[in-house]
Design a protein around this nucleic acid. Structure first.
Lengths: 95, 95
DNA sequence: TTGCTAATTAGATAATATGTTAAATAGCAA
DNA sequence: TTGCTATTTAACATATTATCTAATTAGCAA
């Protein structure tokens, strides 16, 4: 299942936090790493997990690598979770 | 965080599947176990993980133990996930 | 090329998760 | 009590995940 990796990726609090930081646009690996008291290779591993799950996408610009949220997959995962719980899905995009 | 355990619990496909089975009402441990090609102790461990995450609740009735979805926590987790992704939240309960 | 910065990959290790079989617990009924 | 059923807990093996330091790759500029 496509979503199986995504759910695993979401299991780690640091990875969920990284995704939150990407809600408002792209950030470089370094910009993200600054926020954590953790080695860069460890963060890099988290990026790789998120990328494998297709929750984020990367783009190199010079010698920075920018990450951004993959909104399409994010929406799919929300839907999948709602399906797990049988949550009522709502068509409106309001408020 | 309360939801951290829930996200971890959701990382395993069997556990997500168990939750789906509970969407339409309670089931006994044995009824659930029938559906999987896995030992009962393994399933029991999965129940324990879901219970610790408060995603399910249990109730003994005779010598059966019934599990049911904790809808309140399920809703909280959906909201938490939407928060992670910055998903637009919708107030309507329609369709 | 050399040097600098940004980031990843490699390799080791510790911690956590998953699954098994065997044993224990709990309820019910003869 | 004894025996039967349902389920969990214990003990343990193995697989996966998380983290670190050290090494490597990639881009850019003098």
């Amino acid at each position: 299942m496509l979503n199986s990796k995504a759910f695993k990726a979401l299991a780690h609090p640091v990875r969920r936090d990284i995704l939150k930081r990407l809600r408002n646009g792209r950030l470089s690996a370094g910009e993200i790493a600054e926020a954590y008291d953790m080695s860069k290779p460890s963060l890099s591993t988290h990026f790789a997990v998120l990328k494998q799950a297709r929750l984020i996408q990367s783009e190199r610009k010079g010698n920075h690598i920018y990450y951004r949220l993959n909104v399409t997959v994010a929406d799919e995962v929300v839907s999948a979770l709602m399906d797990v719980f049988g949550t009522q899905k709502d068509n409106h995009k309001e408020k």
